[in-house]
Nucleic acid binder design. Structure first.
Lengths: 357, 357
DNA sequence: CTGAAAGCGCTTACAG
DNA sequence: CTGAAAGCGCTTACAG
């Protein structure tokens, strides 16, 4: 039987800074300085202390360190929610770097702002990576706290505050522009673009990039129709229904994959063949996109890389390194699949590299 | 500009146990006892102290608590990996309870066993929820540590050690049995079952349940063909190719969704219509299954509920409550979608409830 | 460049 | 039932 023996301090005599001090012949203070890379310690003692640490296999107790004002080697990750699998790649990227650098990550969702404040107050985390939700108001008290306490934080996506907050973003403009070029290569003459809400920054950038790309290829802009959606599947379905009943276009580009999915569903229902009768593409490369029928051509956000870059920069900030830029924009990748008219077999992903290039 | 002001203890004078003690007119020891629900304190002082805590809005510093042998209100979650979105619902379930009960969760993957040991040694976590990977060897040193230190741990799925370890499991037998009944209702006379590896416990249970269910409905077992797969998409594709080229069956039941996906791909390639020419079903209700074409009939593992139940029991264990069973089995749910021949519109999920019931 | 000492905010035998 | 005191394992001004 599993025994819930609790509370007894069965200390498997852990090696402490005291042990190292004795072994190395220095004070605890010096050992601490070596651990924290204090430049004031003489190189030779540094060496000796390090040797003692290795011999004993000493690992600092971050709990004690945190309590006395040091670091915890832990960073908090704040996500809008966990219900959808949208963030698994992001998390994996973050985790990869965490493992490499021996950091811990504690996961929080937007529902627990109070709990996040507690993390900060008690110094349980050294920094915060924030993927903000739609509505930025939530973050305000949090941001104040972060700024006043001088705790490093990094946004994933456009930050909800302006003044130079650190952020990792995605090249929405470039991604949509590339899609536009690809559409023109396919020879599409009439196109429907379904945007997100007009106030949404991602959607705006994607719309801008798409128009830019079409213009560059001398597409007749009179044949580009634009309708405003809200990023939901239902809305994609509805707009497709409303528009396609009366107009005919060669292709639809939705500002995200969920709306593209809605369009696809409408087409199936109406017996329109994709891509033969009409091409469809989206943006995000969401978790479901390659499994749709037909597999969805889309613009991949490099979520994994966003995670690694965010975490790497977080660690730099925590460890006090000056960072030159406060914003980093990562390139997207056009995922050509069947829904735009490119041809692949049923294992799609496998043959991805064959087309164009 | 974001300022990385680090290391300065800008203590926004946090309220400590000392403040509460003064306010309530008791010693720090007593306050601590109240916080930890020590039964020895007199009800009346309990009341007074609680009042003081409320008035001051005091929140204990878990870091300090941990250092002196108390709890951290943090539980570690150990996952095989984060690369796939398989665990997002599990995480969400865990998180929901964590929020409710004011716990933190720190996320770890199998690649960082050393780092998990560190968490345990320094008492950074009060307990561990473990979703083990295929190969249970990894866990051994970890398990020893857990048992010798008396730290509560709970497995998701069949545990890799036998002796009564706490585990939350899924009713593989019941789920597959229900699928068998459903197959018979559809009138299938010849069936191919693709199992997982013979040593895989999940696969065995599913195979057993499926045969059981067929037998119960007087299915002629001579018309059940069984082939061994390995849970991969490629293998499902291959086996379908090998078998269906020479035999004809009414339906295929794969022991997991990835193999069912492989079967689907093969059918598309060969121009076999699903479900008209052949029905296909899987097990898991993986993240992609409802997005396949046609949407895949499958057995849902209640991942969200597994998460909540695991976390709830973890907290019980941490807080020293005796728990009567060490194993909990949660029911599955048959997700009837188009691939088995049930009919739905393209929003599948929406109409789910209409059939049978 | 290094050490002695105070302190971080709790918990828990030990007395009473 | 409650308090005084020691201690958890670090960090960091302050001296030297």
């Amino acid at each position: 039987m599993l025994q819930y023996v609790i509370g007894y301090n069965m200390n498997i005599d852990r090696i402490t800074i005291e042990d190292v001090a004795r072994r190395a012949g220095y004070s605890r203070a010096t050992i601490s300085r070596v651990i924290n890379n204090d430049r004031r310690v003489k190189p030779s003692t540094m060496k000796r202390v390090r040797a003692a640490i290795d011999e004993l296999g000493y690992v600092p107790n971050v709990i004690a360190s945190a309590l006395s004002g040091g670091k915890t080697r832990t960073v908090g990750i704040l996500l809008p929610d966990l219900s959808s699998p949208y963030y698994s790649n992001l998390l994996e990227g973050i985790d990869r770097v965490a493992i490499e650098r021996n950091y811990h990550i504690v996961l929080k969702t937007k529902h627990s702002t109070r709990s996040v404040l507690e993390l900060l107050e008690t110094r349980q985390v050294d920094g915060l990576i924030i993927r903000h939700s739609r509505d930025p108001e939530d973050d305000l008290s949090l941001l104040n706290r972060l700024q006043s306490q001088g705790i490093p934080f990094i946004f994933i996506g456009k930050p909800s505050i302006d003044d130079g907050a650190y952020a990792i973003m995605v090249d929405n403009v470039g991604g949509a522009r590339e899609m536009a070029h690809h559409f023109v290569e396919h020879g599409f003459r009439t196109i429907l673009f379904i945007s997100g809400r007009s106030e949404n920054l991602d959607s705006r950038d994607r719309g801008y990039g798409f128009r830019l790309g079409l213009a560059e290829r001398h597409f007749d802009m009179n044949n580009l129709h634009t309708l405003e959606g809200d990023f939901s599947r239902e809305c994609g379905y509805e707009i497709a229904g409303r528009f396609l009943a009366e107009h005919r276009v060669d292709a639809v580009f939705a500002a995200n994959d969920r709306m593209a999915l809605g369009v696809l569903l409408y087409c199936h229902e109406q017996g329109m063949r994709v891509p033969d009768d009409i091409a469809v593409a989206g943006f995000d490369d969401a978790f479901f996109s390659e499994y749709l029928w037909p597999p969805l051509t889309t613009v991949r956000q490099p979520m994994h890389e966003i995670g690694t870059v965010a975490m790497e920069n977080m660690i730099l900030a925590i460890e006090g390194t000056k960072v030159s830029t406060s914003r980093i924009i990562l390139p997207t990748k056009l995922m050509k699949r069947k829904s735009c008219g490119c041809s692949f077999d049923h294992f799609g992903a496998r043959l991805q590299d064959q087309s164009h290039q």
